[in-house]
């Protein structure tokens, strides 16, 4: 437990746990809506926010949050109105955001590509106590939305048209998912970096659903997976000289592979259990023939 002593490590671990909880909690709704790569898009857009933060000498984290929220809402609006070539519009947003970030950070006096790298791939060891406060506040918001409104968000993500006919405020809920995803991206930016943040939102969910049958269990298991890999990755990076972000993502993929291998035998066991219940379907031919029917009976 020696890794708990240095203060920077304590902060890193708190940040890691919070991100491990909230990234899959939002990601599960994105996966359910088959928008698994939305987090990646928001990450690209957030780059412009980071660049803007350096240029204006304000906090890159808050600037990235603001820009990511605007970007996520724009993506949601494109999904509503621009049905025809939505993918092209999204591509513009993603790459525009990335290019804008690189340009702005090089225009600023303090920023450089080296600074940019720490946002692209995360820099857990430089998390300050103010960062921890910001991360905790944002994580609380994300948890409140994703857990408190889980029934409504489930319905909207499962079948949007049906959700509209139940009278739910579908547009507001969609925007809420977009904003929550944007907040999560910027929170996770410090831990795994903008380029890998989407992995932490999607891979734990993909891993969990290999062996689950219900949404509830998938939710819990993907959060447990998220926390386990962020903690394990952070601790590994303390002892071995490896970048935490990449370690966390590779660990998550490892869990995915392990659970996928476990899925086949598990499905076999479940199928066998169901078969034993259904096995006895007897042929009811003699009993069900109408009495008046003279049709010749063939041996079955």
């Amino acid at each position: 437990m020696e890794f708990l002593t240095p203060p920077f490590m304590q902060r890193a671990l708190i940040a890691a746990v919070l991100v491990g909880v909230i990234a899959p909690a939002v990601g599960i709704y994105l996966v359910q809506r088959r928008q698994a790569l939305m987090g990646d898009g928001i990450g690209h857009i957030a780059m412009t926010g980071v660049g803007l933060g350096f240029l204006l000498s304000t906090s890159p984290v808050w600037m990235a949050t603001a820009v990511a929220v605007v970007g996520a809402v724009t993506m949601e609006l494109i999904r509503w109105y621009g049905r025809t070539r939505g993918d092209i519009a999204l591509a513009m947003l993603f790459y525009g955001g990335m290019a804008g970030g690189v340009l702005l950070i090089n225009l600023s006096d303090t920023g450089s590509n080296a600074n940019l790298t720490s946002y692209l791939f995360g820099s857990l060891s430089t998390v300050s106590s103010e960062d921890i406060t910001a991360i905790a506040v944002l994580a609380a918001f994300v948890l409140l939305v994703t857990v408190g409104l889980r029934r409504q968000l489930f319905a909207v993500s499962q079948d949007e048209e049906f959700a509209r006919v139940t009278g739910l405020p579908v547009r507001v809920l969609n925007l809420l998912i977009a904003v929550t995803a944007a907040v999560t991206v910027t929170v996770a930016m410090r831990v795994v970096g903008l380029l890998l943040v989407s992995a932490l939102m999607v891979v734990p969910v993909a891993a969990a659903q290999q062996i689950t049958r219900s949404f509830k269990v998938t939710f819990v298991l993907s959060v447990v997976t998220g926390v386990a890999v962020t903690l394990a990755g952070t601790i590994t990076s303390y002892y071995q000289d490896v970048p935490p972000g990449a370690t966390i993502v590779l660990l998550a993929i490892g869990v995915f592979i392990a659970l996928t291998l476990l899925a086949a035998p598990l499905a076999r066991i479940r199928a066998r259990r169901r078969e034993t219940a259904d096995e006895r379907c007897t042929l009811e031919v003699p009993a069900t023939r109408p009495a008046a029917d003279d049709a010749p009976v063939r041996p079955v």
């Binding site: 996966v31 359910q32 088959r34 698994a36 139940t166 949404f215």
Partner: peptide, 14 residues
């Protein structure tokens, strides 16, 4: 959807 859901979970959304 893209995530497993039980019959009960889907019916509950009604």
């Amino acid at each position: 959807g893209g995530v497993p859901a039980t019959i009960r979970e889907v019916v509950s959304s009604g």
